[in-house]
Design a protein around this nucleic acid. Sequence first.
DNA 1: CTCTGGTCCTGTACGC
DNA 2: TGCGTACAGGACCAGA
Length: 276
Amino acid sequence: MPELPEVEVVRRSLVELVAGQRIIDVKVGWPKIIKSPEQHEQFQDALKGQTIRDIDRKGKFLIFLLDDYSLVSHLRMEGKYSKHKTEDPVDKHTHVIFCLSGGEELRYRDVRKFGTMHLFAKGSEWAVPPLSNLGPEPFSYEFSFDYFKGKLMKTDRFIKAVLLDQTIVTGLGNIYVDEVLFRSRIHPERKTKTLSDQEILTLKEQAALTLQESINAGGSSVNTYMNSYGQIGTYQNELKVYGRKDEECYHCGAIVQKIKVAGRGTHFCPACQVCN
DNA sequence: CTCTGGTCCTGTACGC
DNA sequence: TGCGTACAGGACCAGA
């Protein structure tokens, strides 16, 4: 599932592929993907004639900056964009098609149909969900030690639940949370109030470092992830615990366990990550 | 405040 | 072989 690194890699490929192009028509095959405006016909009408000026990102959200609107797109588990010739056959899982002035199409494909698109008047997107409640990204100035510690000391939740909470820090998903916790040698069920300053600092640093390393590797291609050129990433080869249930820990040789934490499948090394 | 569970979906992996 | 069923998951929402 695309998390911050994968979405950033997609963003970069989209800038190269469609920035500067004008949308001349929009086809919607599965209206439920369009969350706002409520009527998808309004979504289609508004986009006609709009030029894609730039593509931004916050956390796992892509933000297409148009002339008068911002199109906020979340890929969820399986969403992907790709560019096609008009005559290319349309895959059955393609649900939204943006016809571009250059005679090509930007297509949104999503097997699970979990992805979302919100269209807002440009500039107003930050005042309402889904962007309004997002916390800082792990490598941003706002994600300071004091900010993070403040959040951690004021809740009784498990650290895994907090790292998945996009209002506290945005961009981490199930894969990278497991990786960050392993690299920090912290058990996913540690209560955040018991974390030492050193552990908090390590978590903060490992979150930023892990995401940056993955971006540099083109993201992790678990399941079906690829960028908008159809290229896969290589960071899946660097994952230390995610997807390694019953395999030996690279660090100590113990057997990687998979349990359920915060409702999510959670991988960890029972020897390296002790819950005290 | 925060936890749980439902919702949205469908391909995959099971058990029989 | 084939069928039925459980499962996975990000964000959001309702209800406890």
